[in-house]
Amino acid sequence: MSYTPARAADDLQTGVDAIEASRVNGTKVYNTQGDSLGHIYDVVIGKRDGKVRYAIMSFGGFLGIGEEYHPLPWEVLKYDERQGGYVVGLTRDQLEGAPRYGEANRPSWNDEAYGRRVSDYYGVAYY
C-alpha cells in the first residue's frame, strides 16, 4: 500500500472531521462576530494519550515581530466551514488578559500550575 498526499481540493471537503496537524497551522481564528483574531501557530499534543491539548494562537505583532502566543484549550475552538477557520467566544479584550507568552519565554507544557491557569481562564477542566 502506498501513501498519496492529500490534494488541495481535499481542503474544501465539508463534513470531514479529521485534519492533519500541518494543515491546522496557519488556519485563521475568528471571534463570534466574525472578526479575525489571529491564526493557529502550533498545536500541543499529549505524548501518551495523543489528544490535542492546546491550539497555540498567534495574536498581535506585525510581520512576525512582537507576536504573542495564546494557548487555547482545544475544546474552546469550533470549526466553522463557512469561514474556513476556527471560532472562539472571546473578544480582543479577553485575549489581552489571557495567559500568553512570547517567543523568548515559552512555557513548560509539563508545568501543571500553568496548565491549570490556562484552563481556569477559559473555564474548562484541566486535563
Rank of each mutant, 00 (worst) to 15 (best):
M1F: 07
M1T: 10
S2E: 14
Y3M: 14
Y3R: 10
T4Q: 03
P5I: 15
P5L: 13
A6K: 15
R7N: 10
A8I: 12
D10T: 11
D10Y: 03
D10P: 07
D11L: 13
D11V: 05
Q13Y: 08
Q13K: 10
T14C: 12
G15H: 04
V16H: 10
D17P: 04
D17G: 09
A18N: 13
I19L: 12
E20A: 13
A21D: 11
A21C: 11
S22C: 10
S22E: 13
S22D: 13
R23G: 09
V24F: 06
V24R: 06
N25D: 14
T27D: 11
T27G: 12
N31W: 09
T32Y: 06
G34W: 03
D35I: 15
D35N: 15
S36F: 04
L37S: 00
G38E: 00
H39D: 15
H39M: 15
I40Q: 01
V44L: 03
V44Q: 06
I45Q: 03
G46S: 11
K47M: 11
D49F: 05
D49N: 15
K51H: 11
K51D: 13
K51C: 12
V52S: 01
V52D: 03
V52G: 02
Y54C: 05
Y54R: 09
Y54G: 05
A55S: 08
I56L: 12
I56G: 00
I56E: 00
I56F: 03
M57H: 00
S58T: 04
F59I: 15
G60K: 13
G61I: 04
F62W: 11
L63D: 14
L63E: 09
G64C: 05
G66L: 10
E67G: 00
E68H: 10
Y69S: 01
H70S: 03
P71C: 04
L72K: 01
E75N: 08
V76Y: 06
L77F: 04
Y79G: 02
E81P: 09
E81H: 13
Q83T: 14
G84N: 06
G84S: 08
G84C: 06
G84P: 06
G85S: 04
G85W: 01
Y86S: 03
V87S: 02
V87W: 02
V88P: 00
V88C: 00
V88H: 00
G89Q: 13
L90H: 01
L90E: 12
T91F: 05
T91D: 01
T91H: 02
T91S: 08
D93G: 06
Q94R: 08
Q94N: 06
E96I: 14
P99T: 08
P99S: 01
R100W: 15
R100G: 02
Y101H: 04
G102S: 14
E103L: 11
A104R: 13
A104C: 07
A104V: 10
R106V: 00
R106D: 03
P107D: 08
N110Q: 10
N110G: 07
N110C: 05
N110W: 11
D111C: 05
D111E: 13
A113K: 12
G115L: 12
G115S: 07
R116K: 15
R116E: 15
V118R: 02
V118P: 00
D120V: 07
Y121F: 13
G123P: 03
V124C: 01
V124M: 01
A125H: 07
Y126G: 00
Y126K: 07
Y126L: 07
